[in-house]
């Protein structure tokens, strides 16, 4: 049965605050082989005007991936996660994530399309800091492959 498009616009409670650690950013940068000094050395980041090390561009996935679980686990949608494939991903940045940030993700369903027996659901994660200011917005399109 196709995913019900009436769920478009549904939003979810904000995630618990995620405290961004300096070592977590270093670990992430190391895992993707990103060697820029601003990801590893607080002094190099300060020279660029940031309070501590900054995160590489796809780091917001650490927050948006967890935040997206609210949608994937929503019993009203009943998504079969074993059929889910990551289709598209987009980030729009207000500023880089900085170690020490306390980030909250707010999840909204932006689009539901059914085509060729597959469902496509686009979720938006608004990522804000402790002051409530926007840091980044992440959009993920998940493909839920049809059966057979």
């Amino acid at each position: 049965m196709p995913l019900d498009p009436s769920h478009v616009g549904r939003s979810y409670p904000p995630t618990p605050a995620y405290l961004v650690g300096r070592e977590k950013i270093r670990e992430f940068a190391k895992a993707i082989g990103a060697t820029d000094a601003a990801y590893h050395d607080p002094d190099a980041a300060r020279e660029l005007g940031y309070a501590d090390v900054i995160a590489p561009p796809t780091f917001p996935t650490v927050v948006s991936f967890a935040s997206n679980n609210a949608v994937v686990d929503d019993p009203d949608l009943a998504i079969d996660y074993s059929r889910v494939v990551h289709g598209d991903q987009r980030f729009q940045y207000t500023r880089p994530i900085v170690a020490g940030d306390e980030l909250v993700g707010r999840q909204t369903i932006e689009e539901i399309i059914s085509r060729g027996g597959h469902d496509f659901i686009t979720t938006r994660t608004d990522i804000t800091d402790a002051s409530g200011a926007s840091v980044a917005i992440a959009w993920s399109k998940l493909v839920i492959r049809g059966e057979g």
């Binding site: 082989g33 900054i54 796809t58 996935t61 289709g87 991903q89 987009r90 980030f91």
Partner: peptide, 30 residues
Amino acid sequence: HGMLTMALVGRAVTEWAGAPDAVLDFSVRF
């Protein structure tokens, strides 16, 4: 992970841009 591929592309983009904080918008289809 698709997001690992995207992260490697992000590396290339920041290296081309010459700054780790130069990216304003970034999107891919897997």
